[in-house]
Computed example of a mutant assay.
Amino acid sequence: MNEPVILHATFTARAGEEDRVTRLLADYSEVVRQEPGNVLFEASHLRGAPDHFFVYEEYRDEAAFQAHLSHPAGRAFNSELTPLIVEPTSELTFLCRLP
């Protein structure tokens, strides 16, 4: 059986870039949600800390996740996001669903 790929990404917007990151994430969320293997893509910021972002993603299986990684929109998103955040890249944490 193919297991879903579940992960969350976190990153911090540079000072003054919170609105740009929010708009970028909102636009990218719409694209990712249309990918055939995407189950869920939700972007949030921490309550009381609008510069700290949290993205929760789920893909049907590894093949769907790999297709997501190779999608041109992802490369464009990361290219635009990178100079707007404090970290060198978003920090990814992969999860396993409990039975």
Rank of each mutant, 00 (worst) to 15 (best):
M1D: 15
N2A: 11
N2E: 14
N2T: 14
E3Y: 07
E3V: 03
E3D: 11
P4Y: 14
P4V: 06
V5C: 12
V5D: 09
I6Y: 10
L7D: 09
L7T: 05
H8W: 07
H8R: 09
F11Y: 02
T12P: 08
T12G: 06
T12E: 00
T12H: 01
R14L: 03
A15F: 06
A15Q: 07
G16R: 01
G16Y: 02
G16Q: 03
E17A: 00
E17F: 00
E18T: 00
D19Y: 00
D19M: 01
R20F: 03
V21L: 00
R23K: 11
R23T: 05
R23S: 08
L24K: 00
L24P: 05
A26P: 00
A26R: 08
D27P: 02
D27V: 05
D27F: 02
Y28A: 01
Y28M: 08
S29N: 10
E30T: 06
E30K: 01
V31H: 10
V32L: 01
Q34N: 08
Q34D: 06
E35C: 04
P36I: 06
P36M: 05
P36K: 01
P36C: 01
N38V: 12
N38D: 12
V39Q: 09
L40K: 13
F41A: 02
F41C: 02
S44I: 13
H45G: 07
H45K: 07
H45F: 09
L46H: 12
R47H: 06
G48D: 06
G48F: 00
A49G: 14
A49I: 10
A49H: 15
P50Q: 02
P50I: 14
H52E: 09
H52N: 13
F53D: 07
F53I: 03
V55H: 02
Y56S: 12
E57I: 11
E58P: 10
Y59W: 15
Y59F: 15
R60D: 15
R60G: 13
D61W: 15
E62N: 09
E62H: 15
E62L: 08
Q66S: 11
Q66F: 10
A67I: 05
H68W: 13
H68L: 14
L69Y: 07
S70P: 13
S70Q: 11
H71G: 09
P72Q: 09
P72V: 13
R75I: 12
F77C: 07
F77E: 09
F77S: 08
N78P: 07
S79M: 09
L81F: 14
L81Y: 04
L81G: 04
L81Q: 03
T82R: 14
T82V: 08
P83D: 02
L84R: 00
I85D: 07
V86A: 13
V86P: 11
E87Y: 02
E87R: 03
P88A: 03
T89C: 14
E91K: 13
E91C: 13
E91M: 14
E91A: 12
E91S: 14
L92V: 06
L92Y: 10
L92G: 03
T93Y: 01
T93R: 13
T93M: 05
F94G: 00
F94Y: 11
F94E: 12
F94R: 03
L95D: 06
L95G: 07
C96S: 15
R97E: 08
R97D: 06
L98R: 11
L98K: 10
L98Y: 14
P99G: 10
P99Y: 05
P99E: 08
